[in-house]
Design a protein around this nucleic acid. Structure first.
Length: 170
DNA sequence: CAATAGATCATCT
DNA sequence: GATGATCTATTGC
């Protein structure tokens, strides 16, 4: 990422294997989905709608193509850098709220395809001693297939989750 | 507010 | 040649 940006993941979605028609991996192993069939702990970054990058983390053993889409981040560091990214000036709550927004804010692109999450530019750490929180489970956003599967997980009450109206941000 | 149109391209058929 | 795990700006009520 450009400089030192960091955030806490507050919203994710799970994408499963063959049985999940909303998952890219359900169409089998292709050039794009190759990393999904590899070992866990690596980034699956792809281009959506011709202009946004989405960050996923491979989360299943080799040969089993499950992954997690990172949908929203609570910015913790490097917020000034995020502000200078492409979106026009906006509130901090919205900087990383949404899969396309957070990759823009952090400068994540397909050049990180396959990158490990245990070291390097894209490092993910466990918040082992962090405060506990409730997780709400809903249907995934923007999918056509398997539209009612409860595979979206977000931190209850977080203002940094996507789809929270400005009025409700308090 | 809520709803919708338009941008834009890698990937797969 | 169609499609899509999105976002922004604009329009309409």
């Amino acid at each position: 990422m450009h400089g030192r940006c960091a955030g806490r993941i507050v919203e994710t979605e799970a994408y499963l294997g063959l049985e999940d028609l909303a998952a890219h991996a359900s169409r089998g192993l292709t050039g794009r989905t190759r990393v999904l069939f590899g070992p866990p702990g690596h980034a699956y970054v792809y281009l959506i709608y011709g202009m946004y990058e989405c960050l996923n983390l491979v989360a299943e053993p080799e040969g089993s193509p499950g992954c997690v889409l990172v949908r929203a981040l609570e910015p913790l560091a490097g917020i000034a850098l995020m502000r200078r990214r492409r979106p026009t000036a906006r509130r901090v709550e919205q900087l990383c709220s949404g899969p396309g927004r957070l990759t823009m804010a952090l400068g994540i692109t397909r050049k990180l395809y396959g990158a490990s999450v245990s070291h390097g530019a894209l490092t993910v750490r466990n918040w082992a001693d962090g405060p506990g929180f409730d997780v709400e489970v809903t249907a995934r956003v923007g999918v056509r297939h398997c539209a009612d599967w409860p595979l979206r997980f977000h931190m209850a009450g977080s203002r940094f989750v996507s789809g929270v109206s400005p009025a409700r941000r308090a």
